[in-house]
Design a protein around this nucleic acid. Structure first.
Ligand SMILES: [Mn+2]
Ligand SMILES: [Mn+2]
Ligand SMILES: [Mn+2]
Ligand SMILES: [Mn+2]
Lengths: 223, 223
DNA sequence: AGAAGGATTTAGACTCGTCTAAAAACGTCC
DNA sequence: GGACGTTTTTAGACGAGTCTAAATCCTTCT
């Protein structure tokens, strides 16, 4: 009964998983935007996913993942992030390339290969961009995070993860040493545009507002 | 203009490539049988491949590969065999599994990854089953071969490659030490059924006719 | 409560890759 | 040179995944 899911179905499930939160159901429009497809396509995929009991679909009311749907999505996250780790650590490919490559590979990697990656890489906890890798049981650690842009002047923190989907942004991060594990401190905030002066590994670095919103550091978001 | 080919198109091109020979054009029926699809499907794919100038299609007369079509097929062979080598050598997966896995991966591996495999594995010359890997320019060495079953009593030879598509057969080969590089000598031939008594690395081993027809050794085929 | 505006679903079309069944062409054998 | 059996092509259908345009529903605002 858990026939193999098509790449398209997996991509929709993943998008739903990413956008899902306790308070808000995921709507047709959300997914259409996230995946760059039409709302009509999304409606028809919602129905197909519902047929397979991967989501609960309410007309005009969006979807929520079932347990099976969530498990599939988390499985895909695991495949994607382990693939990325493999590509950077073993094949030495640049971190701004691997997301795109993993986005195709993730659909073609059988469990044997994934588990070998995991072993060979010594059970990595995160992808190269700092995002946590679910374990084989689908468990994922909760981490308190806030964007670098939320830090007050004088505050210090450690980079946990960065937004991974824009290669240009990733190259910019790499140049400036903004990568997971690095210690940062906000030296100055430019109130008008929102630019930050940040000490990265001691070195003062100017960080644009968009970049600062795409870098996440440890700590609780303000209430 | 060289848009990315679909997995299906690649599979057809590969099948045509495998069956192509100087004297005989590849027919609809050949490919239908090779790929386990209907003749009707094959006809319609022939037309699509012809549209893309990957084959020359003659109604009721089969196809031949164009240069572009041959290049695509050889590229796929390179991806497949390097993927297999990676799976056995780096991930330590069994040689009877890797053909199946590579059959999916081959369609999802971008050039960067393939060239990293090639480097990391030290430019391997063959896949785990002994089949030669085309180089990045699509060059493939010609090798004179004959089936083990063609050896006369008393003859000696070295295994070059084995038929790779039947996992059961591969496990049988592995058990008996029949793998590329091994020296074999025919001690006795059983005329009725065609079974052979073969010395493999010195050890006398009974080899069934089907197996002996699937193991290829060095030497010219008789005229 | 009714109307406006926005989101969602439906309708209908298209491509790709597949199938079965029927029609057409081919090649061989008398 | 025609008849027959085989091969190939055509015709028509289907599912997956996508689109655009039109219809419908929902929400909110007056
Ligand atoms: Mn994907
Ligand atoms: Mn990542
Ligand atoms: Mn394949
Ligand atoms: Mn092989």
């Amino acid at each position: 009964m858990p026939r193999e899911l098509s790449p398209a179905m997996e991509d929709y499930l993943l998008a739903i998983y990413r956008l899902e939160s306790d308070d808000r159901r995921v709507t047709t429009g959300d997914i259409a935007q996230e995946l760059g497809v039409s709302a009509a396509s999304t409606t028809s995929m919602f129905k197909r996913l519902a047929q397979e009991r991967l989501v609960v679909y309410r007309e005009y009311g969006g979807v929520t993942l079932t347990e099976a749907g969530r498990a599939s999505a988390i499985g895909l996250v695991r495949r994607h992030r382990l693939a990325e780790r493999f590509l950077t650590d073993l094949l030495a490919l640049p971190w701004d390339d691997v997301h795109r490559i993993a986005d195709r590979l993730e659909h073609a990697l059988p469990p044997e290969v994934i588990e070998r990656f995991d072993g060979l890489l010594n059970h990595p906890r995160t992808c190269p961009h700092g995002h946590p890798i679910p374990d084989a049981q689908g468990e994922l650690p909760e981490r308190a995070m806030r964007p670098l842009s939320a830090l007050a002047e004088g505050e210090e923190a450690v980079i946990l993860q960065v937004e991974e989907r824009d290669p240009e942004l990733l190259r910019y991060f790499a140049e400036r040493g903004l990568r997971p594990g690095r210690r940062v401190a906000v030296l100055d905030r430019e109130p008008l545009e929102g630019a930050l002066l940040v000490a990265v590994n001691g070195r003062p670095t100017l960080v644009s507002p968009r970049a600062a919103a795409s870098v996440f550091v440890n700590g609780e978001v303000e209430a």
